[in-house]
């Protein structure tokens, strides 16, 4: 029983990070119809900003806020410089562009910060652990579960209850007609990217506190997992992204339990095989977007 709860905690915290990254991907996908592969580099950027801010002696809270601001600014910049001029282009063009941005940023990180991982020591409240009864819970895990729950609920309320949320849904469906409603569509798009940057930053914070270091390619793994999560959950559906993220987290934990140690290296391969299975047999995911307009 205790072991089961322990596994559930692990699954929730891992799945939560995937869910956050997947949410960021899904918001952009729901508008532009493409997966932004440069999203992973937003996580990396957050990591480096946090690393250098802490090295410079900034207080932790301030360093986190600075990192989040940089991730958001970088996301907005991507939209403005790369994606907006391509508006109306084939989603494949956008996807390839995002891959190019991803590659370019990775090279810049390597040149600027070196290829070796930089150890990032999190403050005690993130790296510690506590026991509830006989269950051992890492504080990063606990915080991750709480933060993801709050962000998912908050985002849902924001999208369903505010003028912005409705404007975003409209802009995603029909660019010109959204303008005819008096919506400043460019501002909406920029805000959507800013939100995806914020989600990436928070995800990076949780991700780094689990792995303990920063390196140029660190955004790749969560990006691929989140990509799988959005497909499993249903492309473009925000609820689907969260469901897919947790599904994937749980799936990985189950594999960890079931696979003998020698076979653990196949975990990612099995996850990707699941992706292929979904693409073949349930391409619209668990919660398809069309039937489920973010409600």
């Amino acid at each position: 029983m205790e072991l089961t709860i322990q596994y559930i905690v692990n699954a929730l915290s891992l799945g939560g990070v995937y869910a956050l990254v997947a949410l960021g991907l899904a918001i952009v996908f729901s508008i532009f119809g493409f997966i932004n592969f440069a999203h992973g580099e937003l996580l990396t950027l957050f990591g480096y900003v946090l690393f250098y801010a802490l090295s410079a002696g900034l207080p932790f809270g301030f360093a986190v806020i600075l990192g989040l601001a940089c991730a958001m600014a970088c996301a907005v910049l991507m939209e403005r410089v790369a994606f907006r001029p391509l508006r109306g282009a084939n989603p494949v063009t956008l996807l390839v562009t995002s891959l190019a941005i991803s590659g370019a940023l990775q090279v810049m990180f390597q040149i600027g910060f070196g290829t070796r991982p930089k150890p990032l020591v999190m403050p005690g409240f993130l790296s510690g652990a506590f026991n509830v009864g006989s269950i051992y819970i890492g504080s990063a895990q606990a915080i991750s579960i709480i933060v993801v729950a709050l962000l998912a609920i908050g985002l849902n309320m924001f999208l369903n209850r505010t003028r912005f949320g409705l404007a975003l849904l409209a802009s995603a469906q029909d660019f010109d007609v959204a303008k005819l409603m008096g919506i400043r569509v460019n501002a909406i798009y920029a805000t959507a990217f800013a939100i995806s940057g914020l989600l990436a930053g928070v995800a990076a914070l949780l991700w780094i506190s689990m792995r303990g270091s920063v390196e140029p390619t660190m955004g790749f793994n969560p990006l691929v997992k989140a990509f799988v999560a959005t497909i499993v959950g249903g492309m473009g559906s925000l609820t689907g992204a969260v469901v897919g993220g947790f599904f994937l987290g749980a799936f990985e934990v189950v594999l960890q339990i079931l696979l003998p140690p020698d076979y653990q290296i196949f975990r990612d391969a099995i996850v990707l095989a699941t992706l292929i299975a979904f693409l073949l047999f349930r391409p619209r995911g668990l919660i398809p977007a069309a039937a489920m307009p973010t409600k």
């Binding site: 409705l166 404007a167 849904l169 409209a170 469906q173 959204a178 307009p293």
Partner: peptide
């Protein structure tokens, strides 16, 4: 907006 309710269309 086909994938929004009638009411949301009006609100927009």
């Amino acid at each position: 907006f086909p994938r929004l309710s009638v009411e949301k269309n009006l609100l927009l």
